[in-house]
Amino acid sequence: MKYSGQPDGMMQTDSLIIQACNGDEQARSRLVQLWYKRIYNYCYKFFMDHDLAMEATQKTFISMYRNLSSLQDTGRFKSWLYTICVNQCREEMRKHKKDRAVSLDTDYLYVHDESAAWEKALHRHENPEREYARQELAELMQQCLKELSDEQREVIIMKEYEGMKFREIADVLNIPENTAKSRLYYGLSALKKILEKRNITIELLNDEN
């Protein structure tokens, strides 16, 4: 799997967590460095918006700082951190939906992203055409993921991108393992339908890939 979900060697993280729990300031900032990218990427895929993702990520780590000393089982750190993250994301989403009449489903946020994809593609050494197609597919997947319900999206992100086991996902969301599995199943099925709706573009891109 491309996304290991584990930022560094497990042992190193373990001792780090213990140090951080005991109030070691340096260990804490090292933990932030190790997990920042993962948490940010979870948040980003949840919101598909950089600013909201940054907001939720920041809040997650602030909460981590405040509550780290109360973490009993250091082995549960990953689940614990993701639980904070999931809750922050949900809260942020609720606020955002309340604050703005404009729904996240509108595409206005991603108009500039497409040009960015073009530019990024041009700087690569690979076949730019294929690279662009890949970017395009990524773009499309973003939009499709956005159409899912928050609950389904959470599970898909955790499973596909954060590389978590079903046991971990169940732990994070505080649900039975089977519920996590069936939620993922319905999420994937919904995603499949959404993709089928956009079938033509996908097939086109797929051929090129």
Binding site: K2, Y3, E25, S29, V32, Q33, Y36, K37, Y40, N41, Y44, K45, H50, M54, T57, Q58, F61, I62, Y65, R66, R134, L137, A138, M141, Q142, L145, I156, E160, Y161, L188, S189, L191, K192, L195, I202
Partner: peptide
Amino acid sequence: LALKEVRKKLAALPDKEVIIPALPVTAHH
């Protein structure tokens, strides 16, 4: 098979690089 296809497509969405900003936590402390 279809679900596997979906998973393949999901893999096309890469991680985004992010610059870790100075956390307000330490500053706050």
